[in-house]
Write a protein that binds this DNA or RNA. Sequence first.
RNA 1: UCCUUCUUAGCUCAGCUGGUUAGAGCACAUGACUGUUAAUCAUGGGGUCCCUGGUUCGAGUCCAGGAGAGGGAGCCA
Length: 528
Amino acid sequence: MRCAFECVFLHLSNKRNRSFSVQKYLIKDLGLYDGQEITLMGWASNKRESKGLVFVVLRDGTGWCQCVISQETVGDAIFEEAKKITLEASLSITGKIVKDERQMGGFELQASSVTLIGNSVDYPIAKKEHGVDFLMDKRHLWLRSQRQWAIMRIRNKIIYSIHAFFQQEGFVQMDAPLFTGNACEGTSNLFETDFYGDPAYLSQSGQLYGEAMAFSMGKIYTFGPTFRAEKSKTRRHLSEFWMIEPEMAFYDIFENMDLIENFLRFVVSAVLDDCQNELAVIGRDTSVLKNIIQPFPRLAYDEAVRIIKGEQDVNGKNAIVSLEDELAEVKARIQSVRTEITEREEKIKIPGMKKGEIGFNQAQIDKLKQELGDLEEQERNIPQWLNSARNFEYGNDLGGSDETVITRLFEVPIMVYNWPHEVKAFYLKRDPENSKFARGVDVLAPEGYGEIVGGGERETDEKLLIEKINEHQLPMEAFEWYLDLRRYGTVPHAGFGLGLERLVTWICKLPHVRESIPFPRMYGRLLP
RNA sequence: UCCUUCUUAGCUCAGCUGGUUAGAGCACAUGACUGUUAAUCAUGGGGUCCCUGGUUCGAGUCCAGGAGAGGGAGCCA
């Protein structure tokens, strides 16, 4: 079957005489072709020139390779063409693969011929630092850069290993609908659309459908997009994001927590095993990721609150004190960054400095200024967070800053469970041992990243559910089908929802979720 | 919805208590250079200082309103 398909494809491409239709040799495999003459196809990600030599860094999606085009070897005509190569022009380059210790992959290509496939005039992304807004406007091109390439490869690995984990654990992937007639939790803002004349909403969770599907298969997981119309402008919110929602029959909250822990350990380990190169490209310090083999601390809500308020220490670290220390560090760093900027600015004013050195200093100043901006933002935010942590009122949900405060004290993800039932979703099971609490669990990623998973054991008592639906002022008729799940053979069951982009963001230690998805959709951003 | 910071060349940014003709680096163009790693060096072109109104002899700079962006709160994965 597969062979027949390939034959048809090759036959068609021969018939059309498309000489550039197949990348036969890939940069990731250069080691196999040492000393051989091969043809690479890709894009020029960088070019440097000197008399009689042109250096083109070619990228083909699998890697980067420096190609040396020498006037002596290729002749005057091809050399003149090679000199005109611009950033991101697409090329086919034929030449010999040679070992060269100085190169990133350990090999370079010494060209014998170069063919231009597609021109590229005035490529907008320059070989220098750019602002976020500019890069987001050029997201379709930004994805070509090495850092974005690495992030997307890691995202791909995460997606692949999520499927691998659940499939090997006997879960069946089933999809929840994206059009829904009701608000599942009734809290967030929903995107409204027109469904044949009736209002319909884009799904903000497949959770309730997941429960129905679990009663058919035992263990299921959904993997699909989710929509939240929150006008949030923060580093952890998107309007459209991908969520993975497993749901298991005959699971209680503790078995659920065991599963979450094994699951996250599996995914992070897969990235550590298979994405060393990508993690190195983005400069991720993997030591924290390696802690994933340690057990995840499980904190009841009561304990988490004491830690946030500074009433209880963690391994000798106090939340309030360490936040105060951080503020002092930020202030000190601001001082030293300011001094360094002034020093460098004075230095480049002194006449006689070489142009290259001025350029280097200028680049350093630009970098320092960006850091200064970030630091000044922290200087404004940390006192607010301190205030919020000190005055945390027992019974409230954890805010974004509270999550940051508590997770900075740990080097592994933590699980906070047994929440006051008033602040959590209506479908969470009331704790049989203490009716104040609902059996929900949030997983908070370390290094200040905060919530990546929310889940829990589901309420099985129909009367309590009806009470809750009324309390939240949700339309009862829309939940009749959901109540049926309690009427016809209910069983203890639990599940959770994982935000894919938040997981990618933490694993890659990105400053913002927007870099974790190819084309982010967020407040104020619908293009490209 | 609220708080906060910002908007000057294609890009990243200077521009002091308001004062001649608005600056730098990168990018681009031309030239030089045989091994460059954001190559280097020389020369050159390039501006609605976000918009509207106000104060003033004079506004990139001060004031008011608006638009857009960054961050935070709320809400959440």
